[in-house]
Design a protein around this nucleic acid. Sequence first.
DNA 1: GTCTATATTCAGATAGAC
DNA 2: GTCTATCTGAATATAGAC
Lengths: 217, 217
Amino acid sequence: MPHSAKPVAVKESRSDTRERLEQEILEAAKRLFAVRGFAGVSLDHIARDVGTAKQNLLYYFGSKEGLYRRVLHGVLDVWLSYMEAITHNADDPEMALRKYIAGKLRFSREHPFDSRVYANEVISGAPLFAQEIRDRVLPALQADIAVFNRWAEQGVCRPVDAAHLMVVLWASTQAYADFASQICLVLGKPQLEEQDFAAAETLLVDMVLKTVLSTAT
Amino acid sequence: MPHSAKPVAVKESRSDTRERLEQEILEAAKRLFAVRGFAGVSLDHIARDVGTAKQNLLYYFGSKEGLYRRVLHGVLDVWLSYMEAITHNADDPEMALRKYIAGKLRFSREHPFDSRVYANEVISGAPLFAQEIRDRVLPALQADIAVFNRWAEQGVCRPVDAAHLMVVLWASTQAYADFASQICLVLGKPQLEEQDFAAAETLLVDMVLKTVLSTAT
DNA sequence: GTCTATATTCAGATAGAC
DNA sequence: GTCTATCTGAATATAGAC
């Protein structure tokens, strides 16, 4: 590219490069934090993974904790984007539940590292994450629970303990990311395949619909 | 105690002291590893917690990894002791499932740190634990799955995907230990109480029995 | 068996040249 | 903005006195 290119274009190109490198760093950090936890990963570790020096990570993110917070923030963005099925289908319980389960399992399949970073943080008592969970996750969960309760009032579904049902759905679907290594051992295969997620979805949908929609009280 | 006490008694008393201190160290290490992970805890940390010096931990356990392995081994002992409900009630599906769910929830309630150490290790891909899981956990799980399949053959329960049902049970019950901090946020209380575990048990038993025992195919 | 002292490695973070 | 060099603290582990 000739040096006569417009300064604006050059500037954008440079900031694009920086943007891309930042994203690469965040992705690598996510993968490593997911497996070894915050304390188990060094900046050197991450830097080598993306082919740069740890000083650059500090230049970009200020500190290791700063980098980790950025990772957490991105994880939560992804996490929340898969959470909207229930409130977006509030007029059709069966559809809402089917889509919610399918979406959460897709999250586990497509973003296993995000799921594990989240799990690690929650297991630790969410020391850095608590406020963000309170501000962003809790409202989403409570909206879902409110929808369940409305369904029960309207008589379109059985009165269930919505909070605990959410725990079951949440734990069962995320297990296919967080505890994949053990599920693989049980299934006797090196890694989970599409059919395993399909089988999980069939079972979970069956269980939940039987519980929530059955006519018997 | 006079010095004329029998040497054997003295010896036993001393090894008892050592035994007790070792147990104290293992308990403290378990609590800390559960929350901060293997890399997130230093020997100093653990030593201060039990009121001794880190050199003693090294004297007792050889290395940090040695201590961690001992913790893992103990965790697995506890974990397995709560797993026997299904094979011990193989002639009564409803009883077996009720007892299994109740037992796993009791494990989460009574041994939350064991559960979290186990979870941390599995999320990391069980680098130190894989062999022991293969040798001790897998046979137990496969025995449970075999019982399910036998029930289906005998027609006393619906043909379910037993492996995935185990995942749901396992994940849902352990969530009440591993993800307690988030469940507390959702329930709006500082910590889980007996009634929360009771509500979880009611819902899970309801879901599983509806799925496994309902007459419709 | 327990304590003091220390060797050694490695981490996060900073300073300064370019 | 990126690199080399370095500071500082902390961690595992060992040696040796008592």
